Amino acid sequence: MKAQSYSYPLDPEWTVAEMTTVIDFFRAVEDAYEGGVQRQHLLKCYRQFQTVVGSKMREKQLGRQFASQSGYQFYPVVKQAMNSEQKILKMVGD
């Protein structure tokens, strides 16, 4: 497991609950790269993340910020989760 030495891209206008929702999604993405994550858990976190973020444009902005800080891209993880029947998702690579 990588030692985390970056911060999550968060909006200071979000409530604590909203920040927690976004962080939960980012952690699920990290888990997919670092060892595996339950597919259903990741999809649930993503749906909740979408309700907080509110728009595709903002989602893409946060995705770029998260990728630049962590090295993890969430779009491939979400895409695999949506197109797969696997119970555990495990990303290979970078």
Rank of each mutant, 00 (worst) to 15 (best):
S7E: 09
K56A: 14
R58L: 15
S5M: 09
S70I: 06
V53L: 10
A67E: 13
G63W: 09
Q86Y: 00
G35D: 12
E13L: 07
S84I: 02
E34S: 12
D24F: 01
A3E: 05
V92I: 12
S55Y: 05
I88W: 11
Q65D: 13
V22P: 02
Q65W: 06
Q4F: 05
G36C: 04
G71Q: 07
Y75C: 00
Y75I: 02
S5V: 10
G71S: 07
F26G: 01
Y75F: 14
A28D: 06
P9Q: 11
K60R: 15
A67C: 08
M82N: 05
S68I: 08
K79L: 15
Q80C: 08
Q4D: 06
I88A: 04
M57A: 15
L42T: 00
R58T: 14
P9Y: 05
R47T: 09
V52F: 07
K60Y: 11
Q86E: 13
Q61K: 13
K56Q: 14
Q40E: 13
D94L: 04
K87L: 13
S5G: 04
G63P: 10
F25G: 01
G93P: 05
Q4M: 12
V77T: 09
Q65Y: 09
R47A: 13
Q38K: 09
W14F: 11
L10C: 03
Y75K: 14
V37N: 01
A67I: 01
Q80T: 13
V78G: 01
M82H: 01
R58Y: 15
V37E: 08
A3W: 01
S7Q: 08
E18R: 06
M82Q: 12
G54C: 02
G93K: 08
L42C: 04
S5W: 02
K2F: 08
V53K: 02
R47S: 10
N83H: 14
P76W: 05
S7V: 10
S55V: 05
Q50F: 00
L10V: 09
V37S: 03
S7T: 13
R58C: 03
Y33F: 15
F49K: 04
Q80S: 11
I88D: 08
T15E: 08
F66S: 02
S5H: 05
V77P: 02
S5I: 10
T20I: 05
R27L: 13
F26C: 05
R64K: 14
S70F: 04
Q80D: 10
S7Y: 03
L89W: 11
E34F: 07
G54S: 01
Q48H: 06
A3H: 01
S68K: 15
L10M: 13
F74W: 14
R64S: 10
E34L: 15
F26P: 02
T21A: 11
M91E: 12
L43M: 14
G36Q: 08
V22W: 03
P9D: 10
Q80F: 09
M91V: 12
V77R: 03
Q38T: 00
L43A: 04
G63L: 06
V77M: 10
D31A: 09
K44Y: 11
L89R: 11
Q69E: 13
N83C: 14
Y46F: 15
Q86P: 00
K56V: 14
M1V: 07
K79Q: 14
